[in-house]
């Protein structure tokens, strides 16, 4: 499954991922969220909130 980074336009193959998973663009390094798996699409990952934590 090829995906395109919405930030830098890089294309790369993504496999074994699930919807909602966070991946990193191998080119620009931005964190991306897998939006759909069939077809595979990615969008910018949500920004970390102040109240996020363990």
């Amino acid at each position: 499954m090829n995906v395109t980074c919405p930030e830098c336009g890089a294309e790369w193959e993504l496999s074994g991922v699930e919807q909602g998973e966070i991946v990193t663009c191998p080119d620009c390094g931005v964190d991306l969220e897998v939006l759909t798996t069939n077809p595979a699409t990615v969008g910018l990952a949500p920004e970390e909130g102040e109240d996020w934590g363990e």
């Binding site: 930030e7 830098c8 336009g9 620009c28 931005v30």
Partner: peptide, 8 residues
């Protein structure tokens, strides 16, 4: 901040 489509 990061190399986006424009910067590339």
């Amino acid at each position: 901040a990061r190399g986006r489509v424009e910067e590339k």
